[in-house]
Amino acid sequence: MKKLVLTGAAGRLGSYLREPLSKMCEELVSTDLAEDIGKLYPGERYVAANLESLDAMVDLLAGADMVVHFGAIGDEAPFETLLGPNFIGAYNVWEAAYRNGVRRVVYASSIHAVGMHPKTDFIGTDAPHRPDTFYGLAKCFAEDLASMYWDKRQVEAVCLRILSCAQVTNPRAVGSWLSYDDLIQLVQRAIDTPVTGFSVIYGVSNNDRAPVDNAKAAFLGYRPKDNAEQFAEAVFAEAGPLDHQDPGNMCHGGPFASVELGNSGVATMNIVDDRKKT
């Protein structure tokens, strides 16, 4: 592959993707809003660009084979705040991909697109959209955008419904954890699978208590290796009994299912910022 583009390269997940993606292509173009992202890997260059600018995205994706789109506001916020980067930004990436003849968009979707489904429902990749927040609504929009651009314009897409890619610090994560190694494998399979059309797959590790079913995405070849059960005893003991009437405990979206629309969900999740240093 000659050229890959990674949006959201300055983010925590982007920091773990840069090096492996740089080894899959002749040129990796990493992008974000930051002025720079420090030391670059061999074959990588950095371009500061705004997702809200269609012209910037068209220029960025020129000559690209695929784009790995992880750029966005990664939390619930007022609709007006998310409209530019998360809604319009998604449109700009897909439209720029179409205009440049880019084969495939690999998109960081989220469990929050289906976050109001009860956790006791073992949902598959064909579960209907049931967003828990404006953030989740943006993921629904982008997934539907991806489906339409495949049907109408033959731009392939793999939408990665990531559950929780962070250290296991709460009971929900014992089922929803996606390790960084499994994240990397997930993105690699979304890139190197020869034909994907429009596909959805859950981003979750091989957890004993994983609440979602990837059977219909088996053709992508993603076979996670890590298991959060190793953390279960300590995490459950520290948390104590959970309120079974709290949607944050009962729904796939976790805390995002509980917060008022427009209010941060991440603020309640004790996420450790352990981004990779170059």
Results as ranks from 00 to 15, higher is better:
Pro241Phe: 13
Asp208Ile: 03
Arg189Cys: 10
Arg99Pro: 01
Val155Ile: 08
Gly197Asp: 02
Ala108Asn: 07
Arg153Ile: 05
Arg103Glu: 06
Ala217Arg: 02
Leu4Ser: 02
Leu178Cys: 12
Met250Leu: 14
Ser164Ile: 04
Ser30Thr: 08
Gly254Val: 02
Ala48His: 12
Leu186Asn: 05
Pro85Glu: 04
Ala215Pro: 06
Ala10Ser: 15
Pro85Arg: 10
Met250Lys: 05
Pro131Trp: 09
Val266Glu: 11
Lys276Phe: 10
Pro118Ile: 08
Leu83Gln: 03
Met57Cys: 03
Gly43Tyr: 05
Ala10Val: 08
Gly253Asp: 03
Phe70Ser: 02
Ser15Pro: 14
Gly38Cys: 12
His129Tyr: 13
Asp181Glu: 14
Gly175Arg: 06
Val102Thr: 14
Asp274Phe: 10
Glu238Cys: 10
Tyr46Phe: 15
Asp213Arg: 13
Met1Glu: 13
Ala113Trp: 00
Leu21Ala: 03
Lys139Asp: 01
Met1Leu: 11
Ser176Trp: 14
Pro255Thr: 15
Asp144Glu: 15
Glu238Leu: 12
Gln230Phe: 01
Ser30Pro: 03
Thr169Pro: 10
Ala234Ser: 02
Tyr180Phe: 13
Asp151Pro: 01
Gln230Glu: 15
Ala62Thr: 11
Thr196Cys: 11
Met250His: 09
Ala77Gly: 07
Asn170Ile: 00
Glu233Tyr: 04
Asp121Thr: 06
Asp246Ile: 07
Met24Ile: 05
Arg161Met: 08
Glu27Ser: 09
Lys3Asp: 11
Ser30Val: 07
Leu137Lys: 12
Cys251Leu: 10
Leu186Gln: 07
Glu52Ala: 13
Asp75Trp: 01
Leu6Asp: 07
Glu80Trp: 02
Leu21Pro: 04
Phe256Gln: 02
Phe219Gln: 03
Leu186Met: 12
Ala166Pro: 09
Ile162Glu: 01
Leu186Trp: 02
Val212Glu: 05
Asp208Ser: 11
Glu52Leu: 04
Ser264Gln: 00
Glu52Ile: 05
Ser147His: 15
Asp126Ser: 12
Gly43Glu: 13
